[in-house]
Simulated assay, not measured.
Amino acid sequence: MRGTIFTVLAAALWLAACDMPASDLAGASTGSKPPLEKVSLAGGAVVVDGPEGYCIDPETSRSRNGQGVAVIASCYILSGGKAGYNVPPVIVTVTVGPKDPGGAVPDPAALAKAAGAPLLGAYEDDGLTLAHLGSGGDKMLSEGDQRYWRGAFLQGGHMVGLALYAPEGDAMAGRDGARMLGQVRDFIVRASP
Rank of each mutant, 00 (worst) to 15 (best):
T93I: 04
P88D: 11
Q67D: 01
I91K: 04
V90S: 05
V96E: 09
I56G: 02
C75P: 02
A83L: 09
T95G: 03
C75I: 11
Y54Q: 08
P88N: 12
P89V: 01
G68M: 01
G81K: 09
R62E: 08
G97N: 07
K99M: 03
G53M: 00
R64V: 14
Y76S: 11
Y85M: 09
T95Q: 07
Q67I: 07
I77N: 03
A83R: 15
G102W: 12
P98N: 04
P98Q: 04
I72N: 09
D100W: 13
I77P: 07
C75R: 13
S63T: 15
G53L: 00
V90W: 03
S79F: 06
I56C: 02
N86F: 15
T60V: 08
P88M: 05
G80Q: 10
A70P: 05
S63L: 11
I91N: 11
S74Q: 10
L78V: 06
K82F: 07
T95S: 10
R62N: 02
G103Q: 13
P58F: 09
C75M: 12
T93F: 01
D57W: 03
P101A: 13
G66E: 03
A70C: 12
I72V: 14
D100M: 14
T95I: 08
V71L: 04
P101V: 11
T60R: 11
E59Q: 14
E59P: 07
S63H: 01
Y85F: 14
I77K: 11
Y76G: 11
S63Q: 06
P101L: 06
S74W: 06
V90R: 07
P89H: 00
L78W: 02
S61H: 08
S79Q: 03
P58Y: 00
D57A: 11
P89I: 01
T95H: 00
D100K: 14
D100A: 14
G81Y: 05
Y85C: 13
G103N: 10
V90Q: 07
V69Y: 08
V92Y: 00
C75Y: 00
V87H: 05
Y76C: 09
V71K: 06
G84P: 13
L78F: 05
Y54L: 03
G68P: 03
P98A: 08
A73G: 12
T60M: 06
G66D: 03
V94I: 05
Y76K: 14
G68N: 01
S61N: 10
T60P: 02
E59W: 09
N65E: 15
A73N: 05
P98K: 06
I56Y: 07
R62I: 13
V69L: 14
S61T: 15
E59R: 13
A70F: 01
S74H: 04
K82A: 00
D100T: 15
